[in-house]
Amino acid sequence: MAKPLQVVVVTPEATILEQEAEFVALPLYDGEIGIAPLHSPLIGRLGYGEMRIKTAAKTLHYYIDGGFVQVVDDVVSVLTNKAVLASKLDIAVAQAQLNSAMTKPVNTPELLAIRDRIVAQARAQIHVAKVASKA
C-alpha cells in the first residue's frame, strides 16, 4: 500500500490543518479534483467550495475560500483565504449574505464582479453546510 498523503492547509492567519489522509477532494476554479497517494505533481487555482479529507477513521469536511493547491511527493499544500470546518458554518448567516448581495445595485463592472464573488461564496457555504450536515 502507498504511503498516505500529508495534507497542510494554511490561511494568512494560521496553519489550520496538518494531517495524514488517504484521499483529498478539492474545489478547483473550474471543477473538482481528487488527489490520492502517488498523484502527479500539480499546481491548481482553488474555487469556493468543499474540501473533503478522507482518513482511515473519518471524512473531514471544510469550506475553502479560493487560493491555490500544490501537490508534490504526496504532500498536498492548500493555501487559502479561509478554511472553515463545515460543522462551524451557519446557513442563516450565509443566506443573509446572499440576500444582501442580490439586492445591491451593480452599475459598474467592478461592482458586478464583487457581487458575483459574494454570491458564489455564500452559495458555496450553504452547499457545504448542507452536505456536511447529511454526512
Rank of each mutant, 00 (worst) to 15 (best):
I16E: 10
L42Y: 00
I16K: 10
S133A: 10
L89S: 05
T15C: 14
G66L: 03
K54M: 05
Q6P: 01
T80S: 09
L26S: 05
L60E: 07
Y63R: 02
L17H: 02
L17G: 13
K104W: 08
E22R: 01
K104Y: 05
P109Y: 02
L42E: 00
L89I: 08
A25D: 11
K88L: 14
G34L: 13
K82H: 02
S87A: 14
Y29S: 15
A21P: 12
A132H: 10
L89N: 09
A101G: 11
Q95A: 14
D65K: 12
T103F: 00
A36L: 14
I35C: 11
I126G: 09
I64N: 03
A129Y: 04
K104P: 05
S40E: 13
Y63Q: 11
Q125M: 15
V7N: 04
L46N: 04
I53C: 08
S133I: 02
Q6T: 15
L112I: 07
K3V: 14
R115Q: 15
G67S: 07
E20F: 12
V75D: 08
Y63K: 01
L26D: 08
R45S: 12
Q19K: 03
R117K: 13
G47Q: 10
V72P: 00
H39R: 14
P109H: 02
D74T: 09
T11S: 05
T59Q: 10
P105S: 10
A120K: 14
A92K: 13
V9M: 14
I91C: 05
A25G: 06
S77N: 05
P105G: 06
I53Y: 08
I91H: 06
F23A: 11
A86M: 00
S87R: 12
E32N: 10
L98Y: 03
V119T: 12
E22I: 03
E32A: 07
N99T: 07
T80P: 10
E110V: 13
I64M: 06
D74E: 12
L42A: 06
A132V: 09
P37S: 00
V78L: 13
G66H: 04
T103D: 09
I114E: 14
K54D: 12
L79H: 12
E20G: 05
A96C: 07
L5D: 06
T55K: 15
D116Y: 08
L85R: 01
G67V: 11
A94F: 09
G44L: 10
Q6Y: 00
V75E: 15
L79N: 11
